[in-house]
Write a protein that binds this DNA or RNA. Structure first.
Length: 681
RNA sequence: GGGCGAGUAGCUCAAUCGGAUAGAGCACCGGCCUUCUAAGCCGGGGGUUGUGGGUUCGAUUCCCGCCUCGCCUACCA
């Protein structure tokens, strides 16, 4: 509603500026005034024009208002302050615009590909990975709600050093053969234990082992690590078999963990297929042809294929700062493989993966890459816009990939490549101590300490989820004495997940989250459960009142219809007094005592506006904030206006409709955040 | 050394493209459960927006200098 009216006002203002001053303004700046007494929409445009027109802003504002005339949906415009133009909505009409459920978006906005999660499959997921997956999954929901077709991908680096490290652990610390590893995986599964937790410890032990022993031993172990990596990359040997067993088993665990948070994927492209299907060779040719890559004959990168870094000044002679893509021994770096993969994402590589089914969700299948796949598979790749949810530390390599695409002439694709970057989740020193980690005096002074999978330092995702569910279950048990255990468990899980997802989403992407159990386990104030609680309260009103939100909204629509009829009749019979025919709905939304109600309706009408803001800035936090504010305004309304005891039937209808609209918007906003709305709390 | 990001209330964070009186939550203090659930509501104290300049009608926001912190800066992935 607000978005529509803003667009309408913008068009009217543009027309006035064109006609009166012969000015073409691209977009008129529109903002929300700090107080409802100053209207609902405002523009400071007169300030901008003051210099150009050599007039005081206040005078310009007045001229614009005079020239504006009536605009449908608005009751008046005022000049305020030093030259603001404040627009006042027709409140009853605006509310009636919010009542109908929004039509589903035309799914013609394009084909987006979102890559998120992408955890190395060699250990359990930790809280940093949760932030990634929750941000990515939420953004997928936003894009879909806005009308994009979205493919969700989770890139699996199953042949990298991290997997190699844990394989070294199995082979050389635990002396296990492939069949023994296979047996271990089966054994753990049978006992209901987590293989990714097992690997978490083994990975940390192996990392430590590399650094122990004599200098000679260290060198040997370093070589062992490298040899293991090469055996895995090459494939077709025992080492590679263990890598495949482990990475696949751990990957399954990651999918299970994420499913607890309602996070699903469509496709899992793996590094092994990018290697074996020779994506790089195809990309290498294109990179050479386009001149993005050149062979370095001099300097420190002599003998390598390199590319100029983004933003680098063109310099004469040797560019020692260039990014190495192919090493002098002929092997390709990570960025090189990533360029090839991204050419595939945009459908520019000329090669494709094979596809196999891997994991079944209730309503769809998740596919995984394969050298030779199944004949009938969905199509992936060839997107028009891509979003890579990757932490801020990787902005350099991401920029390199974009630079390469641009250099190859794919400027449109480069422009639609978004590094959806976010800051890491770290632990507060207090939290680290509570978890039993030994931390240095230096670290104790810091406000946060970076987690490290290599050191086994961090909070595992499943541990946190278990802990959250236990805490919410204890609380639910004290409140829901009449519900049975299964119902309580379901509620506890919904609240726990709501708390966790909201915790990760309420902070903007570029701020480091210093994790603390006290904050994460909080269910009061600006939290997911606070919003869920508002939903439950509204549902209770309808339950106690023996009616439904649908009936309430229909009731309001009927009320509006009757008023319109009455007003028409009045104008036909009484002529001049037509304008004076007053509307009850309008009365309910005006006056000092009703400002909170109007404020609630106004915010309920902002969904489309917030959604566009989130997508335009790749920032889900705005929606999280919106949902909280809506819940907060409802809580305020709830305490001031008692609905079920309202005696005036028309006003009761209106108050019920207010609750119904709020309910719909809260449930909708929570769903976009990936948070369920419980029936009871 | 270079690049990127950050510094806002005791703490954790917001603040739309440069706009009106810098806002929330937590913590703290004081009230409110015979009511549609107190996971809630109301009230209160709390700020030289790191610092010094500049740009202008207007700066938390943009520019320059300085201070502090984090990350990136491999022929690792």
């Amino acid at each position: 509603m607000v978005l529509e009216l803003e667009k309408r006002l913008g068009r009217s203002l543009r027309a006035v500026l064109k006609e009166k001053y012969d000015l073409e303004i691209g977009t008129i700046p529109l903002e929300t005034p700090p107080d409802l007494r100053l209207g609902e929409i405002a523009t400071p445009i007169a300030f901008e024009l003051a210099r150009k027109l050599r007039k005081a802003p206040k005078i310009i504002a007045q001229e614009i208002v005079t020239a504006l005339g009536p605009v449908p949906g608005f009751v008046r415009f005022e000049v305020a302050g030093a030259g603001y133009i404040n627009a006042y909505l027709d409140r009853a009409a605006a509310a009636l615009l919010v009542v109908p459920a929004g039509s589903p978006p035309a799914s013609e906005r394009g084909h987006a590909l979102v890559e998120h999660t992408s955890i190395n499959p060699n250990k359990a997921a930790h809280i940093g990975h949760l932030r990634n997956a929750i941000l990515g999954d939420t953004f997928v929901r936003l894009l879909r709600a806005a009308g994009y077709k979205v493919d969700v991908q989770n890139y699996i680096d199953n042949t990298g050093v991290q997997v190699a490290d844990v394989v070294v652990g199995f082979l050389h610390l635990e002396k296990k053969s492939p069949s023994e590893v296979r047996a271990l995986i089966a054994e753990l599964a049978r006992k209901g234990e987590r293989i990714d937790f097992y690997c978490w410890d083994l990975y940390a032990r192996t990392s430590q082992w590399y650094g122990e022993g004599t200098g000679e031993e260290k060198a040997e172990r370093k070589q062992l690590r490298l040899d293991t990596l090469h055996l895995i990359e090459h494939g077709g040997n025992d080492t590679a078999e263990i890598a495949d067993l482990i990475s696949t088993a751990v990957l399954r665990r990651h999918l299970e963990t994420m499913l607890r948070l309602d996070i699903e994927y469509d496709f899992l492209p793996r590094e092994s297929e990018i290697l074996h299907l020779k994506f790089w060779e195809a990309a290498f040719e294109k990179l050479k042809q386009s001149g993005v890559l050149y062979f370095e004959n001099e300097g420190k990168n002599k003998g390598c294929w390199v590319m100029t870094r983004p933003g680098a000044e063109t310099i004469e002679g040797t560019d020692d700062d260039a990014k190495v893509i192919v090493r002098s021994n002929g092997t390709v770096t990570y960025v090189g493989k990533d360029i090839a993969y991204h050419l595939w994402k945009f459908g520019l590589l000329g090669r494709d993966f094979g596809y196999k089914r891997f994991f079944t969700y209730p309503d769809h299948e998740c596919w995984i890459s394969a050298e030779s796949g199944e004949p009938n598979h969905p199509r992936f790749g060839g997107a028009t816009a891509i979003y890579n949810v990757i932490d801020a530390r990787q902005s350099d390599p991401q920029a390199n990939v974009i630079q390469a695409l641009r250099g190859m002439g794919y400027t449109d694709q480069a422009d639609h490549y978004t590094h959806f970057s976010y800051e890491m989740v770290a632990l507060t020193p207090r939290c680290a101590v509570d978890l039993g980690y030994d931390i240095s005096e230096e670290d104790k002074q810091k406000s946060y300490i970076e987690v490290s999978g290599r050191k086994g330092f961090g909070v595992k995702a499943d541990d946190l989820i278990d802990k959250l569910i236990a805490a919410t279950r204890a609380e639910v048990d004290t409140r829901q004495t009449s519900n049975d255990s299964a119902v309580r468990q379901k509620i506890a899980e919904q609240i726990a997940i709501g708390a966790l997802r909201y915790f990760m989403l309420k902070v903007t992407r570029n701020s480091v989250i210093a994790f603390d159990f006290k904050d994460a386990l909080s269910f009061e104030g600006e939290t997911g459960p606070y919003i869920q609680y508002a939903v439950v309260r509204i549902r209770n009103i309808f339950r106690k009142g023996s009616t439904t939100p649908e009936a309430a909204l229909a009731g309001l629509a009927k009320l509006a219809e009757q008023e319109q009829k009455a007003s028409q009749q009045a104008s036909e019979s009484a002529g001049l007094q037509a304008g004076a025919a007053h509307s009850a709905i309008s009365d309910y939304l005006t006056g000092e005592a009703n400002e909170d109600i109007w404020s609630l309706w106004l915010r309920a009408g902002r969904r489309a506006q917030i959604l566009e803001q989130c997508i335009g800035t790749s920032e889900p936090a705005y929606l999280a904030k919106h949902a909280f504010q809506l819940a907060q305004e409802f809580a305020n309304f709830y305490h001031r206006h008692h609905i079920l005891t309202e005696e005036d039937p028309a006003r009761k209808t209106f108050l019920l409709a207010t609750a119904a609209v709020t309910l719909r918007e809260l449930v909708g906003a929570l769903a976009l955040l990936g948070i369920e709305s419980p029936e009871a709390m």
